[in-house]
């Protein structure tokens, strides 16, 4: 994966949070981790990438961020099922928006959503993950991308 491809994901994060009640989101410098568990919060929505690219894109967030995010779009149901739904929808939106630059060969799956550590692994050795720290309000989330 080329580092310049990361820019489109950074733009997607800013665009996503611009549509919430608090558009000020801080996106940190990406860094490399070996495994998803190294950059993972309470809930994770993971998208499998296929086509011209292979890999994963995931959004991982603490429960409190998801509750606040759900409330910020006017929804009052902050049950666990809704938090799982929300983390999957954010992952879907951030990865789907990346097609603007990566093209139609960047094919995304429906989200795999988990509480705790995702069971899906990135394929093959040497496929490290770019972890992009996100701070929205006082909460810290993570966008992970591994493409090859």
């Amino acid at each position: 994966m080329k580092e310049e491809n990361l820019r489109v994901f950074l733009s997607s994060i800013v665009k996503y949070f611009a549509h919430t009640s608090d558009p000020s989101v801080n996106v940190g410098a990406p860094y490399l981790v070996d495994e998803i568990k190294d950059a993972c919060k309470d809930y994770t929505g993971l998208i499998s990438i296929s086509g011209d690219y292979n890999g994963v894109c995931y959004f991982s967030a603490p429960a409190v961020l998801l509750r606040h995010l759900i409330l910020s779009v006017g929804e009052t149901d902050t049950s666990e099922s809704m938090m799982l739904d929300a983390v999957g929808e954010v992952a879907n939106t951030l990865s789907g928006n990346a097609r603007k630059e990566l093209g139609k060969g960047f094919e995304i799956s429906a989200p795999h959503i988990t509480k705790g550590l995702p069971t899906m692994e990135t394929e093959g050795e040497g496929n490290r993950i770019y972890a992009i720290p996100i701070q929205w309000k006082s909460y810290k989330a993570m966008l992970g991308i591994s493409l090859h």
């Binding site: 879907n92 939106t93 951030l94 990865s95 789907g96 928006n97 990346a98 097609r99 603007k100 093209g103 139609k104 995304i108």
Partner: peptide
């Protein structure tokens, strides 16, 4: 209404 942000789709 989709997250897929490219003209071809």
């Amino acid at each position: 209404i989709s997250a897929l942000n490219d003209t071809s789709i």
